[in-house]
């Protein structure tokens, strides 16, 4: 029994997703440990992003259960919730493979939008705020402080009032993560956060993720192709191929799993030994 099975933040049970005749995910089960950085890897088309879309409510799974256990003890069945509720109530936040920032709004505004729900409550659903009642002003200042905190973390505080679309690719990736963190998530889903980053930016990303894990009550699950990132920062790796889990364990375990090597090298299982000898592992 591994650590992620003792205290999972999210349990994926028998998840199946079909699009018409195509089965993108077939009877997939795994756990995401609380406080872990979990990596979801697999060849292109393995169904990784589909798993994310099911977790975050953008797709409704055909079958299966997704149980989110919040640190306070409440449980949420994600497959029954509307997408925005999953972020608002179950505290699952995500980023996108093709970055989705509010390009025409400033960096600060992007982070303010992420704090929409608490601010709406503080402004008595706009009415109180409009009349200048209640603690809206105070909450607004606090929200700006939270935003500033994250801007310092991602080193963009000097450019807070610039439009998000003006940022470089690497900065946009980090801003998107900071924005997701502003929703106060307990589980953060990152869809290929290191894609298109240069080595320096990749390193900064690692630092940021380590920081999030250490300083915040947030577990991270990420889809990644860059094996150096995966092996370096993750505690737990789940490998998918053709919508089926083929391996699940620590990075070291997965690295040496013949099934994984077969999937990545594109050979049958029984030929793996031969291939391993050839490449010298």
């Amino acid at each position: 029994m591994s650590s992620w099975d003792n205290n999972p933040v999210l349990k994926v049970e028998h998840l199946t997703m079909r699009f018409g005749g195509l089965t993108a995910i077939n009877d997939l089960s795994f756990n995401i440990g609380r406080g872990d950085i979990t990596a979801l890897i697999g060849p292109n088309g393995a169904g990784k992003t589909t798993v994310f879309n099911c977790i975050t409510g953008f797709y409704k799974p055909t079958e299966g259960r997704l149980i989110m256990a919040r640190s306070g003890g409440e449980k949420h069945l994600l497959e029954r919730m509307a997408d925005f509720k999953i972020t608002a109530d179950a505290k699952v936040a995500r980023t996108f493979q093709n970055i989705r920032l509010f390009g025409g709004m400033t960096i600060l505004e992007n982070l303010m939008v992420a704090q929409h729900n608490p601010l709406m409550v503080a402004s008595n659903w706009t009415i109180g705020g409009l009349l200048g009642l209640g603690g809206y002003k105070k909450s607004n200042v606090e929200a700006i402080e939270t935003a500033k905190y994250w801007l310092e973390r991602i080193d963009l505080i000097d450019r807070a009032d610039k439009p998000a679309a003006d940022l470089s690719y690497g900065d946009q990736r980090r801003l998107e993560i900071a924005r997701a963190m502003c929703t106060g998530p307990e589980l953060l889903c990152l869809d290929e956060p290191a894609a298109g980053l240069n080595p320096k930016e990749s390193l900064e990303l690692n630092t940021l993720l380590q920081y999030i894990r250490k300083e915040h009550d947030t577990s991270v699950v990420l889809i990644e192709h860059d094996m150096s990132v995966v092996m370096e920062i993750s505690d737990h790796v789940v490998v998918l191929d053709y919508g089926v889990k083929i391996s699940d364990g620590t990075p070291d375990f997965v690295k040496n799993d013949p099934h994984v090597i077969a999937a990545y090298l594109g050979v049958e299982d029984d030929e793996v030994g031969q291939v391993e000898e050839e490449v010298g592992i």
Binding site: T56, F58, D83, F84, K85, I86, T87, A88, A93, R94, F96, R100, L101, F102, G103, G104, M105, V113, A114, H116, N117, R179, A180, T183
Partner: peptide, 10 residues
């Protein structure tokens, strides 16, 4: 700007 991103932010 982006409806899908809005939904992802709750």
């Amino acid at each position: 700007e982006d409806e899908i991103a809005c939904r992802a932010l709750g």
